[in-house]
Amino acid sequence: MTVLAEPLPAARRRRARMTPARWGLYAFILISALYFLLPLYVMVVTSLKPMAEIRQGNLLALPVSPSIDAWVTAWASACTGLTCQGIKVGFFNSVRILLPSVFISILVGSLTGYALSLWRVRGASILFGAMMVVAFIPYQLFIYPLVRVFAFTGLGQSLLTIVIIHTIFGLPTMTLLFRNYFTSLPPELFKAARVDGAGFYQIYARIMMPMATPMIVVAVILQTTGIWNDFILGLVFAGRDNLPMTVQLNNIVNSTQGERAYNVDMAATLLTALLPLLVYFGSGRWFVRGIAAGAVKG
């Protein structure tokens, strides 16, 4: 994973004087930054405009009479196909899916990574290698058999099902993350714990996991954004009553009959993007570490 080390503060070349080349550089940076910011800006201003202003005005113009009506509608009363209770239903579904999924997937992943890294058991490297390979297989290969398996076990589409599904598909990345971390620790630490007589779970719970706090943070960021942003798994496995926010959002925007309320659409979109954005801007460099660590899977 050396390729993906976290970018270090560039401390090497001194800051150059403002030559024409530097002006060009800054112009490039500015223009590209605008390209990346444009959609976010448009989302925000659109969500604050009344429909009349959207129809007559300019996409890029600031709202003349800003209002948060669209946000209220999007949250509480926008229609997702049959019901009109807004995106809040999806929001709470996503929260209910997110919390247990993040916790369980990290628990199982860290335990697997721990067992595979420190306890050299026969076949461990084969299992790990296989997990890294299958992580690349598209979901489409598993979805139908899994639907059948869950139908057969009686779980069907449910909250529990989607939590298990997120644990399963998070397993390779989580395992990789923790395995690499535990492998990087001095092996003597593990030996000392063994001499001290600590058993498998004691070493895991009392020595390794307290040390792995940075990895846990990375794992939480990775799983939170990943699970929150998931669409396809939630659509297939969560069931009608637990559809996550992404699915509800798509329903609100793309299944509207009659005239579309773009301001409500954009407010709902922003609401859906809010949590990942908060995680992203709140976590700073940790996010980069997270995607670097998860990069092998992607």
């Binding site: 001095p186 630490l189 000392a192 001290d196 020595i207």
Partner: peptide, 28 residues
């Protein structure tokens, strides 16, 4: 290892980083 009646001191100390000195020494 724990049943051999041995104790061991390592080159890199191998102290448990999240535990105090007291906890490190009494953990075993």
């Amino acid at each position: 290892p724990k049943d051999r009646g041995i104790a061991m001191v390592f080159q890199s100390y191998a102290l448990y980083p999240r535990m105090t000195v007291r906890k490190n020494m009494s953990f075993g």
